[in-house]
Design a protein around this nucleic acid. Structure first.
Length: 550
RNA sequence: GCCCCUGUAGUUCAAUGGACAGAACUGCGGACUUCUAAGCCGUCAAUGCAAGUUCGAUUCUUGCCAGGGGCACCA
């Protein structure tokens, strides 16, 4: 519908000689203004130098003719908005489609044929996954689904740091604890914390860990490597269990142990071409020239830094996955890092740089203070999930439902706000199971399903359609546009807030209207079905579970 | 010091330069012998400060104030 209106407005502008101007077609803030509105007249009036109100009148006339029966009323309002109210028939048609299309309802086709690779989560083996990784995962998974919903082929990638100081610290910690055969990820995580502490407090420990780190990079010491392999496998297996719970999966895994070499090679090659420079024995990228700052890519000891490895990763992805777009989801603290990596990449391989986007997610800040492994107040992903599941269990005996509700609460908390901004995490308040929360949406869906189930047992519903469309119907019809916009703007929160509005409207409808045995029963049941499809598909696209009952 | 991000109701968050700045939590006040009360209805309450750009600014620009992040051999 939005597309049709957009096209009709374009046509109207052409006949006014306004040419190509950027205009919006969107939902008015208040439904009394109609179902769509456009500011085209205000924009065009400036270009052609006419009174906005007159231009609006002309556009309105033109739209009345071109849109025909799908429109009920077109009005000019305010300084020159054109408000469009759909006809009852058009609304009924959209709702019927929503009810009939099932899982297909809301799917777009804007990205058909596109291959999009999206990298997210990026946990480090030998450390436990904490809530920062959880955020990356939840945001990344929802983006993957949103983009897939627009028809693109999505390839999920996960990049993990299996070499580096943190690994040496963990292995050192395990050895010190006399553990010869690591068994659990928790054990390894604790050993890492112990190793980190020792690294900063004891010079001897620091020296030992540095040696160990080199040994891991070289891969010569059989015993160390055997230990490394075992520990890595245990960590990775623990991650997989979490992915399963989270409803996510990956098509490709990349490891720092494989990007180091290619990264080093590419940077050295760039050094010869004059892209990088030598300084104090290290290889640096002189970011100042582009208004950024200078960073070391290869250390004076010859080892690649994170930056060089990211260059290596970009090439490795290119080698293994053909893509039209590449998205990387990481914490916002890496914004500066990626600006420099992209600047360097722009010099080395502009096509890769241009198709790559960094999507930062905010920090999860504890209301009680900063989270750090040293202070011991790190909240692990698993710990958080377990805690919320426990809370959800108070109302749900079925452990599966409790888990679905808990994940809904956690994921919604993360997705409800614009990615990039921090979440102030208060265990009591943030994970509310009421009001503006995941369970609120799930609960609305469950109640609608229950109505439908009850109706199917009964007799044939009373027919007839209501005289005027319900507000609920007028919200439902916008679902495909909202999903498309959320995908385009990489902003799951747009869909999350739409679904919250939708759930609220359903709850009002449910409280006010008698569905089974009420007036217009058949129509209302159709509406319930349309609501269910919209909510179910919407939640699924966000990666939020849709329980059968609560 | 330099660069980036953020300042919206008591609190946590919304709002492609658009109409009366929306929710939720909290507070206060209600309804219901009915399809699941994790629900519904009502109500109090906000754009950090000062200029500028224009038909119109929470949104763009500048300055100030406050908070967060980043800034050469960690990731």
């Amino acid at each position: 519908m939005e597309q049709q209106i957009r096209k009709a407005v374009s046509e109207a502008l052409k006949t006014l000689n306004a040419g190509e101007v950027p205009f919006s077609v969107e939902r008015p803030t208040d439904l009394v203004h109609g179902d769509y509105m456009t500011n085209a007249a205000l924009v065009a009036a400036k270009v052609i130098g006419k009174n906005p109100h007159d231009v609006a009148e002309q556009i309105a006339d033109s739209l009345t003719k071109s849109l025909g029966g799908s429109v009920g009323r077109i009005e000019v309002a305010g300084p020159g908005f054109v408000n469009i109210a759909l006809s009852i028939e058009a609304i009924a048609l959209a709702v019927r489609e929503a009810g009939a299309q099932g899982a297909e309802w809301g799917k777009g086709s804007g990205d058909v044929g596109q291959r999009v690779v999206i990298e997210y989560t990026d946990p480090n083996p030998f450390k436990e996954m904490h809530i920062g990784h959880l955020m990356s995962n939840v945001v990344g998974e929802s983006l993957a689904r949103l983009i897939g919903n627009e028809g693109a082929t999505v390839i999920r990638a996960n990049y993990q740091g299996d070499v580096g100081p943190h690994v040496a610290k963990a292995i050192w910690g395990l050895q010190k604890a006399g553990i010869t055969e690591p068994v659990t990820a928790k054990e390894i995580g604790e050993a890492y914390a112990e190793g980190s502490r020792a690294y900063e407090e004891s010079p001897e420990a620091k020296a030992e860990i540095d040696v160990l780190n080199q040994a891991i990079y070289m891969g010569n010491d059989k015993n160390v490597m055997e230990f490394w392999r075992k520990g890595r496998d245990i960590s990775l297996a623990a991650f997989e269990r979490l992915y399963k719970i989270l409803g996510t999966h990956f098509d490709y895994y990349f490891f720092e142990s494989e990007t180091a070499e290619s990264g080093t090679r590419i940077v050295k090659d760039g050094l010869e071409k004059g892209i990088f420079e030598e300084s104090e024995g290290a290889v640096i990228y002189p970011g100042e020239k582009k208004g950024l700052h200078t960073l070391v890519f290869i250390t004076s000891r010859g080892t690649p830094t994170y930056e060089a490895k990211d260059i290596g990763l970009a090439f490795l992805k290119e080698e293994r996955i053909q893509s039209d777009r590449s998205i990387i989801v990481t914490a916002a603290e890496q914004i500066g890092h990626f600006k420099i990596v992209f600047a360097a990449l722009e010099d080395i391989a502009p096509t890769i740089a241009q198709k790559t986007t960094h999507v930062p997610h905010g920090f999860l800040r504890l209301s009680t203070g900063k989270m750090s492994s040293r202070a011991g107040n790190v909240i692990t992903a698993e710990g958080l999930i377990r805690e919320v599941v426990r809370k959800a269990s108070e109302k749900n005996e079925d452990p599966l439902i409790a888990e679905q509700v808990a994940l809904g609460a956690i994921k919604y908390m993360i997705l409800r706000q614009a990615p990039g901004s921090d979440i102030i995490f208060d265990e009591e308040k943030s994970l509310s199971l009421e009001g503006d929360s995941g369970p609120y949406l799930q609960y609305a869906l469950v109640r609608a399903r229950s109505v439908l189930a009850a109706a199917e047992k009964g007799r044939t519903p009373v027919g007839g359609a209501s005289a005027a469309p319900y507000v609920l119907e007028r919200i439902i019809l916008h679902f495909p546009e909202v999903a498309a916009r959320a995908a385009r703007e990489l902003s799951p929160n747009l869909l999350a807030s739409y679904l919250t509005e939708l759930a609220g409207e359903w709850n009002s409808f449910y409280a006010q209207e008698r569905i089974i045995g009420g007036d217009y029963e058949a129509h209302k049941l159709m509406l319930a079905r349309a609501f269910i499809n919209t909510m179910k598909n919407g939640l699924t696209v966000l990666g939020i579970p849709t329980p059968e009952r609560m």
